[in-house]
């Protein structure tokens, strides 16, 4: 099922709030097609969670929506502007509204934790050093790692690195935040805390969130809508209740974590 089957009336209603719109989006790397004819829209303020088996292109889709990967075909509209061919200064204006937590955090290893958060503030704002330090302290406190301010990313644990990544992604108070597997490699309690933190910060900034996770409990905890990346396409499964009752056998197998089903052939092809 794709966004394309929505009625025109519904489309009209949601268009006003739509900040990301992808139509027939395809992404390929040389001969390898990762995504094919994906249709998707994301409304302001919603939380869309992307799920799906490993290697199906979730990260590629997230990076494409964030403007980091150029689609090979189709159109991508961010904040009602066509991304392809947009002048660099216009792109930067849109990127200023975004924040992203990368799968492996992508922290600047040559900067301390505090400086990692200060980096976007120094680059993009005219704030004084005192103000910057106040903001850095506020975010480090929010994610509970104020004690690690002067440590370097390699000197802190994986969970703390994740928190630092979240704090850096949020430093400029973005309207649109992308989280690539924010709970990967974390224990269940830390995972739950991280999701609570994401939701709390989302509420505070009234932000739009697009997140990848394969942990269904965490997906249900934060999602307004869920979509599954599968076989180069996107299956919009709806809200939590709709997802749980979804008729697609691949979706059903994935969310239940069952061993038998259509996904097995996908795994064999990996």
């Amino acid at each position: 099922m794709s966004e394309a089957i929505l009625s025109n009336e519904t489309k009209g209603l949601i268009n006003k709030n739509v900040i990301i719109e992808a139509k027939n989006l395809s992404v390929a790397f040389e001969a390898h097609t990762v995504l094919k004819n994906v249709d998707l829209f994301v409304e302001k303020g919603e939380t869309l969670v992307l799920i799906g088996p490993s290697g199906q292109g979730k990260t590629v889709l997230l990076k494409t929506l964030a403007g980091l990967i150029e689609p090979t075909a189709g159109t991508l509209s961010l904040y009602h502007k066509q991304w392809r061919g947009l002048p660099e200064n216009e792109k930067i204006k849109i990127l200023d509204k975004m924040g992203m937590l990368f799968q492996k955090n992508a922290l600047f290893d040559s900067l301390s934790c505090g400086e990692n958060i200060a980096f976007p503030l120094r680059e993009k704002t005219q704030k004084s050093e005192l103000e910057i330090q106040e903001i850095v302290d506020y975010f480090l406190e929010s994610v509970g790692i104020i004690h690690a301010k002067n440590l370097y990313p390699e000197e802190i644990s994986g969970g703390m690195q994740k928190r630092l990544g979240i704090a850096r992604a949020l430093a400029l108070m973005p309207e649109l935040i992308f989280y690539d597997d924010p709970t990967a490699g974390l224990d269940p309690i830390t995972s739950k805390k991280i999701i609570e933190l994401i939701l709390e910060l989302k509420k505070k900034n009234n932000a739009t969130v697009i997140a990848i996770t394969n942990d269904m409990n965490r997906a249900y905890q934060m999602a307004d809508r869920i979509a599954m990346v599968y076989q180069q396409n996107l299956i919009i499964t709806g809200n939590v209740e709709e997802t749980k009752k979804h008729s697609n056998p691949a979706v059903h197998q994935f969310i239940k974590g069952e061993l038998l089903g259509p996904l097995n052939s996908s795994f064999e092809n990996l």
Partner: peptide, 14 residues
Amino acid sequence: VTEQIDAIRCLGAD
């Protein structure tokens, strides 16, 4: 490869 360049881009810097 550690996505630091993508992160710079995503933080609105060139």
